[in-house]
Write a protein that binds this DNA or RNA. Structure first.
Lengths: 210, 210
DNA sequence: ACCTGAACACCGTTCAAGT
DNA sequence: ACCTGAACACCGTTCAAGT
């Protein structure tokens, strides 16, 4: 289970955690595992395949030991969503890589399958299940990627672009919301509320055709 | 409106469209605009700022000429979502850049404002509006990024990872869905159905506290 | 003000060669 | 089989210099 390839991928993950994905070069990785850059090509086809392999390692860590442990379908869905968010909080560089490639690895298929079975159990008509799986995974990965890249928290350390800000007269929505926009974000609570809304969405689809 | 900076950004967009984002190097861009690489740094702080500027140009193109043209709030929401998807279909490289940075540019704020006003008109309680804006924009950008990067269409030309595929015995959801999984994807229809479900989600939140 | 040339410290990947 | 050294064709960015 922990062959040379896994060793190399884990070293790459460690570099990304410490100094960012951009610091993961074949040369730096080779240095870390104590070998010449070219020796890596024996275990990894490509730089792209290396990045794929790295997210693969995280996916393995993300999966629940026993999916049937949680009792209801929405508990299992929420557990998977929270696990995904936790992974991207620990490895922010990985968030947007999750969008780049179909989940055709064994662990990716297992994650999709957890969502499939949850939706079936929820009573979603079978032809609608794959669509709702994509809707849910898209939102969860999107939330994780947004949080990890700072899309949700402007101004934090990034006051660029403020100069040309349109007058509030041009932004009636912003003006109307006034004070609500200056509240500090609690992204954990927000994620929870979002998942609750999506659970209701699933229930609505299940009801619709039953 | 179309100064030297815009000229440079549009040249960069053109390179990305023709040969991918990775082909957008300071050297290649300088070549295209007929100048030395270092001359670009007069108009753009950084490679990162260059990429920001490129998505900024697309955002400008995305915005509706007159947001009030569409009659109902859900029509305006859908129009914006379809415009976003269209942009990432024409510029696939841009999809995941939309996740990387908060929408603090003037055009970004205008797009957010369109969603704010739609949600207010839908009757969503004001404290919930910013959360639902993030939910909706996250899903729409996520869908666009997934489609643009091929996450939704595995196997197309990317049969990697199939080797270790778990047995269907391990994947009860896949087994149960059987034939529904082999249907060809109509992502336009799926996006439409997703937006309809999200519209219902918004209506449910609006009803809840009213 | 605006641009250039040369240089620095990097990249991913190839290829032939070594053991 | 597995690894290496040297090389190729690139990067972003700096700095001093030119007009």
């Amino acid at each position: 289970m922990s062959g040379r390839r896994e060793e190399i991928l884990d070293a790459a993950v460690a570099i990304a955690d410490e100094r960012g994905v951009d610091a993961v070069s074949m040369r730096a990785l080779a240095d870390r595992v104590g070998v010449t850059p070219m020796a890596l090509y024996r275990h990894v086809k490509d730089k792209a395949a290396l990045l794929d392999g790295m997210v693969g390692r995280l996916l393995t860590a993300l999966l629940p030991a026993d999916p049937a442990e949680e009792h209801t379908w929405d508990e299992r869905l929420r557990a998977l969503a929270h696990a995904a968010r936790k992974v991207t909080q620990q490895h922010p560089w990985a968030a947007h890589l999750l969008f780049s490639r179909p989940a055709v690895t064994p662990d990716g298929l297992r994650a999709v399958d957890i969502i499939y079975t949850a939706l079936i159990e929820a009573g979603v008509p079978e032809p609608q299940v794959p669509r709702l799986e994509r809707l849910i995974s898209t939102f969860v990965i999107g939330f994780a990627a947004s949080e990890a890249s700072g899309r949700f928290t402007p101004g934090a350390e990034d006051p660029r672009g403020r100069r040309g800000r349109p007058d509030d007269g041009e932004l009636p929505g912003h003006r109307a919301l006034g004070p609500w926009l200056d509240l500090p974000l609690d992204l954990t609570a927000e994620f929870e509320a979002d998942l609750a809304d999506i659970t209701r969405l699933v229930e609505a689809v299940a009801r619709y055709e039953e």
